[in-house]
């Protein structure tokens, strides 16, 4: 029943959607090129600097997810590469 305890959208839910989805206005009146989420790219580069931010209590949810992910991968969860479960769904 995990979702009952965590029904709130997290920042990561929003980042996934606001940065990577949404209508791409594909016209030359737009300064950002279609399909190039500038900020998304910059974000990934910024992940390295996250240690500093969490010291001040910022972005902890984000950090927890990223770290827990790294740990669970190490813990033999590598049994399941993300790719292996994808075929057949698209």
């Amino acid at each position: 029943m995990e979702y009952r305890g965590a029904p709130q959208a997290t920042l990561v839910d929003l980042l996934d959607r606001v940065l990577e989805r949404g209508l791409v206005l594909d016209a030359d009146i737009v300064i950002c090129l279609a399909g190039v989420p500038l900020i998304g790219l910059r974000l990934r580069a910024a992940l390295a600097g996250m240690e500093t931010m969490t010291k001040y209590g910022l972005m902890q949810d984000w950090d927890r997810e990223v770290r827990a992910g790294a740990q669970s991968l190490q813990k033999g969860a590598a049994l399941l590469a993300g790719q292996a479960v994808q075929p057949g769904l698209h």
Binding site: L11, L15, I31, C32, I39, A45, G49, M59
Partner: peptide
């Protein structure tokens, strides 16, 4: 006429929100 860009996650979060 230029994109919002930052390497600061706190700023990014506030923009996205």
């Amino acid at each position: 006429v230029q994109p919002y860009q930052t390497a600061n996650l706190e700023v990014t979060a506030s923009w996205v929100q």
